[in-house]
Each structure stands twice: as structure tokens, then as C-alpha cells.
Design a protein around this nucleic acid. Structure first.
Length: 641
RNA sequence: GGUCCCGUAGCUCAGCUGGAUAGAGCAACUGCCUUCUAAGCAGUAGGUCUUUGGUUCGAAUCCAAACGGGAUCACCA
């Protein structure tokens, strides 16, 4: 707190103390702290900070304006930097002196890391994000997840936390066996005798594996259709009696049901038939062989996962994100099983006659939840239990984990955290599900089956191409080398995309409009980058002239300084709210305010050296904060564009 | 059906720990480049904050219900 003696929250606290001390003198009665409610003064009236007077007036049974005048007069006499006040209705608008704002500017100018708390001054938190399956490439949904997780990690760091960025890679399970099986069966043999690989086809590893996942699903659907056809015709050859009975039962249940119930029953029938397909059986057999560490299966598995990782690395690199430590589900699912057995012994879980292990959460208003299958294999949550505990073993000073995962898993995390708590881990209450909303397209939901999934690599390529075309047209890039230009196009395109995905409140479902995502104007990343670049150009030309001793500021400057001085508390707020959107909106407001100032006030042309110098320093600090803020969003701030 | 989330301008979103006349951006329309980068600025127009009750000095904000949209309730992940 004391790092920034001029920042907004600090002023509020100081004034609050004065009010509490002086209450009896001024008002004749002691003051209750909850009467004191500050808010920023509206832009269209005079004043820097507003005190709500209604609570005082109510308690004192006196008109608000009268009470406001007493408080205003008192603060003016008592506090050096309170220069005056205005009373409008029940609002006391406090006016700070010019000197106060000048000191604000000077102190932030001395601090290159203005707004950033001392590193490692707060507890260690782990931020998990990305966490993909290894059977298909990353898509638009992952982009929101990854940009969000990265930015939250950076915000936590900026707020003083030690941060460990991590992900858990879902490298194990039926989904990857499907790709493996399809590759084994359908990958063509090339003229040189090799099977298709990323190396001999030039296809990116994750894309190649994804291709076979799709192939698997296609063959599965075909076989499913023929099974259903056979059953419909009364042919149950090769089908067990139990399944046959179940099918007949479900078919009979269809009679007299409404449309919705009917759809549910049809889904169950499909599920039943799917399990009867040869190809799915083969994939399941492969999973069993994998768990038994069959050498051939294991080799194929590690080879194909290796392809995927190489592909992901390329994607992560372009995204500009990184991880401090990786966890693989293939390592942690066994730990999870151990934890479940341990919990069973301690009575946290219970076993059903078929051998499956459950937890009863009905006393918490939830259901019974499976934690280990009857065949002893792990489910999704088993692995999560193991991973969480492992992480606290690996990092002794870890205080909590942030899980960046979509809100479709709200229930899952509610259950997970409850289980961890019941297992007796006190840190469970410090685990937080950073639950973000789905990304919709103008055409509706993304659906892999309908081929409407937006591929992450393709999208990044498109936004950079669009940025390239527009920057070549209007950018001031004559002085840049070819390499610098390329980097600039990349920064603008990616900056636009990241800003577009981060500016919306993470909790909310959002609409992704491809055309808007490459816009340069209005509330966009490039708009902010542009202002940063323009200030840099200004500073290059000014070459920071000889130091003038007395700076001079006017009301034009004060409005901006006010915005700048709220940056530290904004970072804190955004960090605590896990919300890069708060920062994005702040940067947008600051940019608009500066552009307006820039248009209205001459800077280099200002004849008064004291004022010119103040405006340069002000501009330089706006650029500094835009740069810091953009960095926390994972966006580069070009020096020229 | 149970549980959870959402509903603000034509569109996309801020504002939500109750406070002044509900704000931006896009799209539309009007101006401003012989002057510090016009990816900019200034302005016009656009609203029953889904609806109905309640809480109180005061409600977009809190509570309840209705309507509309979404998610989830797997020996999937």
C-alpha cells in the first residue's frame, strides 16, 4: 500500500481516517465507518473524489447539503491537499490541489514499474490453463482459455504473487486410442514403404493425429448406422442377450413419449449400439493393452503424442505463452488411484458391490459421484485428485491453484474441491475454478460434428494476414527492416485477437465475430497499440529536452493524471477478480482520454517550456502504462506502427 | 424434471459490494489532415436496463416469481 502514496485507494483511506477522528468535533456524534462511502467524481462535475452524504444525513436527521458543507469545510481545513469542495444534492465533491496531482505525476514518473507490486511478496499460486486433449488440434475455445489463463497468471505476478504456470495434458484415455487405431488401420503406406508421419507428409503433428481422430469417428458412425439397421430388422447376431433385452426395453419405452424424451431414448439406444461396434471395441481393447503397458501399443502412443506435442509447441509459441511445469495425466492417474484407495480406507469413500468406488455428497446438496470404475480404472476426476495433491507435494509453499476451465465443468470442480476438502486438505479452500463462458460464432455454437470448429492456427494466420494488409497500406513502416515489419504485423494481428478475446468479462459467454476480430478501429488492441506507438514517436522527436525545474499542469492534464494514478489499484482489483477484462477496459478508457488530450493540446509545439515538459512527461507515463498493461494481457506494444 | 449461469441501444459489450441525467465500440449521419502518426478527434441519432411484484431516502444493480436463452445432472473428458 505505502508503495504508492498517491494512488486513489490510499487517498480514500487517509481521508477516511481524518473523518473518523474528527467526527465528534464536526458533527457532535461518533461516526460509523460504514457511513463513509467514496466514489470517483462524475466527469461532468467539478471535483476529484466524491463522498456520499446520505448516510450521515440520515443518522443526524439533518439535510444532506448542510452536512456536506460541514464535512467539506472540515476536510478543507484539515487536509493539506484538499483545496476545496462542492456540494450537489447529497454529494460532497472534494477538490484536490494542482500540487497534489503534480506530485502524483512526478512520483509515477520516477517508477519504471509503476503499478507492479514487489515480486514474490505474496503467496505462491499455481495457474493451470490450456490443458488440451492430445487427439486433436487446438481451436478457438482453447484460445480464450489460453489467453485468459496466461493473462491472469501475469496479473497475479504483477500483484506480487509468485506464480507457477502449468497445464495438465490429457494424454491418456480412449480418445487418443481412437486416433492410434485409425492411424494403424487407415494411414496409407507411402511409396518408400513408410506410413504417414508429420516428417514425411509435412503435416503439423497435431493436425495429422486429429485427421485420424476424425477418420475414426467417421468409421464409427458408419458402423453404428449398420448396427442400428440390423437391430431394426430384428437381426441380433453376435449381440448379447442383455443388450438385446435392453434394446427392446428402450424401444418399447418410446411409445407415447414427447419429442424431448424420445430424443433422450434414441441417444441411449445409440450409446448401446456404439458399444457393439467392432471399431469401438478395438479402441477399448487398445486402452486395456495400454494400461497393461503392452510395448507395441505404448510405442505407438508415445510416438503419436510426440507428434502432437511438436504441433502444440508451434501453436503455443505463436500465441506467446509458456508453462513452468507440465503434468501428464498418464503420470498422475495412478497417483489419483492411490489417493482413492487411501480415502476408501479412511472412510471418505465407499465401495459398491460391483467394486466401483464412490463418494456421497448428498449432504452437500449434490449426488453420489463415481471416483473409480468397477474395473479399477480411473475416471477424469480420479486424475484431478491425484494431480492436485501431487502439485502441493511439488511446491511446498503453494497456497492455491487456479483452474482455467470452461463453465461447462462448474459441477465437476464443485465436486473436486469438496472431495479434496473431505480428504482433509486445508488448501482445498484456496482452489479456484476460473470458469469462463463458451465462445459462440455468428452461425451459432461451434460443433465439431458440423465442421464449424475454428482452428487456432488458421485463425492466428488469418488475423496476422489481415493485419499485414492493413499495416502495409497505412502504417509508417518505411524505417523498418523486413524482419521488423514481419514482427510488427504479427504483434498487431495477435494483439487484436488477444484483446478481442480478453475484453469481455471471462465469466460471460461471448460472441466471436471474425470480421470484428480484425478491426483496427474503436475498442480494439491495435487502437491501443497505435496510441502507444504515436506517443513513442513524439518522445523520439522531443529527445527529452533539458530539465525544466517547475512543471506546470492545467485541468487537461489533471484528468489524465487521475486516470493514471488509479492504475495500481486497478491491477490489484483485476488480479483479485481474475479479470483481464477490467484491465482491457481500463486501457481503452485511458487511450481514449489520451487521444482526446493529444488532439486538443499541443505538446511539442507548446511554447511554455514548463507546460511542454509536463505534457511530455505525462505522455511518456501514458505510454509506460499502456505498455505495462498490454504486456499483462500478453500483447506487444510496438514503438512505431 | 433438479441444480447453476445469463437477459442493458439495430449488433457486440461496459456499468452490478445499491447513489447524480444508464455508457462505450461497431453500423448510420455531419464536420476536422499545407500543423506532434486521421489505426485519430469533435458532434448527431439510437433505451419501457425482458416482465411483474418486493426491500428503501434512492434499484440496471439486492430479493421473489414469470417469460426467454444456455450449461450440467455418464463406470465421457
Amino acid at each position: 500500500m505505502c508503495l504508492y502514496p498517491n494512488h486513489t485507494k490510499f487517498m480514500e483511506r487517509e481521508l477516511k481516517e481524518v473523518l473518523i477522528q474528527q467526527a465528534s468535533n464536526w458533527l457532535g456524534i461518533p461516526m460509523q465507518t460504514d457511513w463513509i462511502q467514496f466514489q470517483p467524481t462524475r466527469k461532468d462535475v467539478v471535483g476529484d473524489l466524491t463522498l456520499m452524504v446520505f448516510p450521515f444525513a440520515k443518522a443526524l436527521q439533518r439535510p444532506p447539503a448542510e452536512v456536506a458543507a460541514i464535512l467539506g469545510e472540515g476536510l478543507k481545513n484539515e487536509v493539506s491537499y484538499v483545496e476545496g469542495y462542492e456540494v450537489i444534492q447529497g454529494f460532497l465533491n472534494i477538490i484536490f490541489s494542482n500540487d497534489h496531482w503534480l506530485h502524483c505525476l512526478e512520483s509515477m514518473d520516477r517508477d519504471d514499474m509503476y503499478g507492479i507490486s514487489a515480486p514474490n511478496s505474496k503467496p505462491t499460486v499455481m495457474v493451470e490453463y490450456a490443458s488440451p486433449n492430445t487427439n486433436k488440434p487446438l481451436h478457438l475455445g482453447h484460445l480464450r482459455n489460453i489467453f485468459l489463463g496466461y493473462s491472469v497468471a501475469e496479473l497475479k505476478k504483477a500483484n506480487g504473487h509468485r506464480v507457477v504456470k502449468t497445464q495438465v495434458i490429457n494424454d491418456r484415455g480412449i480418445h487418443i486410442c481412437k486416433s492410434m487405431l485409425a492411424w494403424q488401420r487407415y494411414a496409407p503406406v507411402l511409396p518408400n514403404g513408410e506410413r504417414e508421419t508429420p516428417a514425411n507428409t509435412g503435416i503439423k503433428g497435431d493436425k495429422l493425429v486429429g485427421k485420424y481422430y476424425v477418420a475414426f469417428e467417421k468409421h464409427l458412425q458408419e458402423e453404428l448406422a449398420s448396427v442400428l439397421e440390423r437391430w431394426k430388422a430384428g437381426d441380433f447376431s453376435g449381440t448379447s442377450n442383455a443388450v438385446q433385452e435392453k434394446y427392446k426395453e428402450l424401444t418399447l419405452a418410446c411409445v407415447g413419449k414427447d419429442e424431448k424424451a424420445l430424443a433422450g431414448i434414441h441417444d441411449k439406444i445409440k450409446e448401446l449400439a456404439k458399444n457393439e461396434t467392432e471399431i469401438l471395441q478395438a479402441a477399448k481393447d487398445m486402452l486395456v493393452r495400454w494400461e497393461a503397458r503392452d510395448p507395441e501399443t505404448y510405442l505407438l502412443w508415445s510416438t503419436m503424442n510426440g507428434w502432437v506435442y511438436e504441433g502444440f509447441d508451434v501453436t503455443y509459441q505463436r500465441m506467446g505463452v509458456d508453462f513452468d511445469r507440465l503434468y501428464y495425466e498418464s503420470d498422475t492417474f495412478l497417483l489419483g488411484k492411490d489417493q482413492v484407495m487411501d480415502g476408501l480406507a479412511r472412510g471418505v469413500f465407499f465401495q459398491k458391490p460391483d467394486g466401483s468406488i464412490w463418494i456421497d455428497l448428498s449432504s452437500e446438496g449434490l449426488d453420489e459421484k463415481l471416483v473409480l470404475r468397477s474395473d479399477g480404472t480411473a475416471v477424469y476426476i480420479t486424475q484431478d485428485i491425484g494431480t492436485a495433491i501431487e502439485r502441493f507435494h511439488n511446491y511446498q509453499d503453494l497456497s492455491g491453484i487456479v483452474y482455467t476451465v470452461g463453465n461447462e465443468q462448474d459441477y465437476h470442480f464443485k465436486v473436486l474441491f469438496l472431495i479434496l476438502e473431505k480428504l482433509g486438505y486445508s488448501w482445498a479452500k484456496n482452489c479456484f475454478h476460473l470458469s469462463y463462458g463458451m465462445v459462440d460464432l455468428p452461425s451459432g455454437k461451434m460443433k465439431s460434428r458440423e465442421g464449424t470448429v475454428v482452428d487456432a492456427d488458421d485463425l492466428m494466420e488469418e488475423v496476422v494476414m489481415a493485419a499485414t494488409a492493413m499495416t502495409e497500406e497505412r502504417g509508417q513502416i518505411a524505417a523498418l527492416s523486413e524482419a521488423e515489419r514481419k514482427a510488427l504485423f504479427e504483434h498487431i494481428g495477435m494483439g487484436g485477437l488477444k484483446y478481442y478475446l480478453l475484453k469481455v468479462d471471462p465469466k460471460k459467454r461471448m460472441m466471436f465475430n471474425p470480421e470484428e476480430s480484425i478491426d483496427l478501429m474503436g475498442n480494439t488492441g491495435p487502437f491501443i497499440q497505435y496510441t502507444h506507438a504515436r506517443i513513442n514517436s513524439l518522445l523520439r522527436k522531443a529527445e527529452m529536452e533539458t530539465q525544466v525545474h517547475a512543471l506546470r499542469i492545467e485541468s487537461n492534464e489533471i484528468a489524465l493524471i487521475k486516470t493514471l494514478s488509479s492504475f495500481p489499484s486497478l491491477i490489484e482489483e483485476a488480479s483479485e477478480a481474475y479479470s483481464p477484462a477490467l484491465l482491457a477496459n481500463y486501457l481503452f478508457e485511458l487511450t481514449k482520454a489520451y487521444n482526446s488530450f493529444y488532439q486538443q493540446c499541443p505538446i511539442l509545439q507548446e511554447p511554455d517550456p514548463s507546460l511542454r515538459q509536463a505534457r511530455l512527461i505525462l505522455s511518456s507515463n501514458v505510454a509506460k502504462i499502456l505498455g505495462t498493461g498490454l504486456r499483462l494481457l500478453g500483447i506487444h506494444a510496438p514503438a512505431r506502427m
